[in-house]
Amino acid sequence: MRPRDTTEQEAADKWEVQLRKGCLELAILAALWEGKLYGLEILRRLESDSDLIVSEGTIYPLLSRLKSVGLVRSEWVESDAGHPRKYYALTGAGKQRGREMAGMWARFSSSMDKLLAPLVRGK
């Protein structure tokens, strides 16, 4: 039975990874909701406020894409550390997209919670 257990665990892990990937864009918009942040700060915010461990090589191209489609804007700010950092902030379109996605997420999550309640309680 062991090989089957392993396969099932792998399938569950794969599903969890896909689920996390699906909400990465929303997570970045949410991380920027309260103000501008630079790339490393966004990574830390995602790690501390959610379970999203994003690879460093992913976040910068993704931020570049969000900027290209007008959801975030960027500016270079000289830091106390002596080098400039590229800060990102939400644009009007980014705030709107964030609100829409958060609304969808809340509705979806609420309906799934109801459905999943018996499974979570273990009945």
């Binding site: 992913t58 910068y60 191209p61 570049s64 290209s68 489609v69």
Partner: peptide, 18 residues
Amino acid sequence: EELANQYITDNLLARAEV
């Protein structure tokens, strides 16, 4: 190479949205 790949595919998707 991997990082450049990420930039290029993300850029492709961004351009496609426009």
